[in-house]
C-alpha cells in the first residue's frame, strides 16, 4: 500500500493556479526528491500534503487517512519540517521538543524516550537548554528536524532540510535521511540537485504547478519520463525539462 496518495491536487490563490492537477503516490522505502524552480509549487504541495492548506480540488491520503476529513489520524503519521524550519525562538530545544511531544499525546517516560532518541539522532545534546534564538542556523534546523522525527512517523515531509547548513552538517542530515529510508516514505523538496543524487531513490520535477517529469536513477544516470528518453546527469535532465516549460513561474506567498 502506498503511504502517500495524492490525487488530482489543485490549489488556486485568486486567479493564480499554484498547483495544477498533481497526482502521485509514494511507497514505504522511497525517498522522493521534489524538484523544481522557485515558485514551481513545491512548498504549496507540501503544505497541502501535511494539511496546513486546504486544496481547491483533489485529495491527499496519508496511510489511508484523508488529510481533510481525518486530519488528526493523518497528522499523527506525518513528521513535517516546514520551509525555513520555524521554531519558537524564546523556547529551549528541550522545551520545544517537550511541547511537540505533548501535542502528539506522548506523556512521561514515552515522551522522554522519544525526545532522547530524536536528540541523539540529530546531535542536539550540547544546546538542549539554550534559548533557540541564540543557536546557530545549523542547530536551529536540527531542532526542526528533531521535532519532525520525534514520534518516529511513517511519513516524513521535509521542505529544504539542508538549506543553510554547512557541508559537514549537510552530510550528516543526508546520512540521517538515508538511515531512516527503509522503513518510511520520505518526501524532500529541494533545489539542490546533488542532494537528490545523494539521498533520493526517485525524483519528481514540478514547474508551473504541474508534474513535468517523474523518474528514478538507473545504472547510467537518471531516467525521468516522459520528456527525456535517454538517461543522463540529473542537472542536464533538470535543465532541459524546466527550461523547456516556458515563462518563469511567479513567487507565491500563501499566507
Amino acid at each position: 500500500m502506498a503511504m502517500i496518495v495524492i490525487e488530482s491536487l489543485v490549489k488556486r490563490f485568486g486567479a493564480f493556479t499554484a498547483v495544477d492537477d498533481v497526482s502521485f503516490a509514494v511507497e514505504r522505502g522511497t525517498v522522493l526528491g521534489f524538484l523544481g524552480p522557485n515558485g514551481a509549487g513545491k512548498s504549496t504541495t507540501m503544505k497541502m500534503l501535511t494539511g496546513f492548506l486546504a486544496p481547491t480540488a483533489g485529495r491527499v491520503r496519508v496511510c489511508g487517512f484523508d488529510v481533510e476529513t481525518r486530519p488528526l489520524e493523518a497528522r499523527r503519521r506525518i513528521g513535517y519540517l516546514p520551509e525555513g524550519a520555524p521554531t519558537y525562538p524564546d523556547m529551549t530545544p528541550a522545551g520545544f521538543l517537550g511541547f511537540a511531544a505533548a501535542a502528539r499525546g506522548l506523556r512521561g517516560a514515552a515522551a522522554r524516550t522519544a525526545i532522547d532518541r530524536a536528540v541523539d539522532l540529530v546531535e542536539l545534546k550540547p544546546v538542549l537548554h539554550q534559548p533557540i534564538e541564540t543557536l546557530s542556523k545549523g542547530f536551529k534546523r536540527r531542532v526542526g528536524l528533531a521535532q519532525a522525527i520525534l514520534h518516529d512517523p511513517d511519513v516524513l515531509v521535509l521542505d529544504e532540510p539542508t538549506d543553510g547548513l554547512d557541508p559537514n552538517q549537510k552530510h550528516q542530515v543526508r546520512a540521517l535521511i538515508r538511515s531512516m529510508a527503509t522503513e518510511k516514505a520520505i518526501v524532500i523538496s529541494t533545489h539542490i540537485l546533488e542532494e537528490v543524487e545523494a539521498v533520493c531513490t526517485r525524483a519528481i520535477v514540478i514547474g508551473h504547478g504541474r508534474i513535468l517529469a517523474d523518474g528514478e536513477p538507473t545504472g547510467h544516470g537518471w531516467r525521468l519520463g516522459p520528456h527525456m528518453a535517454a538517461p543522463g546527469r540529473l542537472d542536464d535532465v533538470f535543465r532541459s525539462i524546466t527550461l523547456g516549460a516556458g515563462a518563469p513561474a511567479r513567487e507565491v506567498l500563501p499566507c
Partner: peptide, 8 residues
Amino acid sequence: ELLLTLPV
C-alpha cells in the same frame, strides 16, 4: 504552520 500540522 508547525502548530497547525501537529495533531491538534
